[in-house]
Design a protein around this nucleic acid. Structure first.
Lengths: 182, 182
DNA sequence: TACGGTGGCTAACACTGTTAGCCCCGAAGG
DNA sequence: CCTTCGGGGCTAACAGTGTTAGCCACCGTA
């Protein structure tokens, strides 16, 4: 990832990733990042034009990782649509749970797509579209469901005793089984 | 709403709501809010303990308004489950589109439920659970879908030509028709 | 008349992203 | 060998953030 980043810029992005994972979005400040690198905050700007660019780098890498996380589910394509969708959903959910702060960074606000590594968003989106047989409306519905479940779980939005597994299963099954609109 | 707020506190919350709607989440600062009220920022703290409390007030009011927005859909309960769910979904989506900044404030992060107006979250959640015949897992799945669709639309996450209406319709129909798990 | 609460105020602290301007060091060219 | 130039650090500073401390004026009440 990130062939167009200088070596030093890549080091900074890598440190930012660790900082983000360890301390969350609020902890990701230019001064704290610089501290981890043993330099001062303004020096970062010799390598990256602003914080937004840094975040876009993290987001781009996140998409690549997410696409990679989908690969096993795609590989197991022998099972029917329902199995593939279930596997993709589980991979998506696990990505969110393993990288909650990165996940929030990736989804909280608008993407500025022209500053992401090109193609990376489509790369992560394709497996679900294919699993849905090219039905983009249904794929978008399933994506919205997966994102909603993931972010609501991360934000502790479900009641304490809620059976999140069951809600995932019900939703994914209903969407995977959806008939063609008529 | 908000019987436990002093009159002055309620004025401040009302001004904050206007500021939020007009200038977005980033514009909602204590100094800018104070400016609109003709006072200085520290004076706000005579009426509200901190910014979080102010935001919680906005969020609580938001839930009340959201519950109110659901009422027509509930009233039209004569149609089958599919119609009621569609109407609830449309009401939810419209709430998000009419109040995008408030919607983000309400959903972006964890709720600190103990500081919200009590019962207000349940008030907004009940109509969907009832529409789903008390099936809480399915209601949660539908809620996740609706939230996902709304926030992805607000964050311009769908491709430019995407048929968001169609994705909404597909998802809500599939979920409303979901059979009992077996 | 004195008092206490209400609701303002200024000054300040610790933080944020970011810019301007300085300096050192190492590599390359004349 | 000397010079020049760019990479990559630095400090100081600015405007903004939430928040606290401490001061003061008013106003109703005992």
């Amino acid at each position: 990832m990130a062939e167009d980043r200088s070596a030093r810029a890549q080091e900074i992005v890598a440190a930012a990733r660790v900082l983000l994972e360890e301390e969350g979005g609020d902890g990701l400040s230019m001064r704290r990042l610089a501290e981890r690198l043993g330099i001062r905050a303004p020096s970062i700007y010799k390598h990256l034009p602003d914080k937004r660019t840094l975040e876009n780098a993290l987001i781009s890498d996140g998409f690549v990782e997410l696409a990679a996380a989908f690969e096993p589910a795609v590989g197991a394509g022998a099972g029917g649509r329902e199995q593939v969708v279930a596997a993709l959903g589980a991979a998506y959910r696990n990505f969110g749970r393993r990288h909650p702060h990165l996940y929030r960074l990736m989804t909280d606000r608008e993407l500025d797509r022209e500053h992401l590594t090109p193609g990376v968003e489509e790369l992560a989106a394709r497996p679900l579209v294919e699993a849905m047989g090219g039905d983009v409306d249904l794929a978008r519905a399933a994506f919205a469901f997966a994102h909603g479940m993931t972010v609501l779980e991360l934000n502790d939005r479900f009641p304490p005793g809620a059976d999140v597994d069951a809600a995932w299963a019900r939703g994914l099954r209903a969407l995977a089984r959806a008939d063609d609109p008529g």
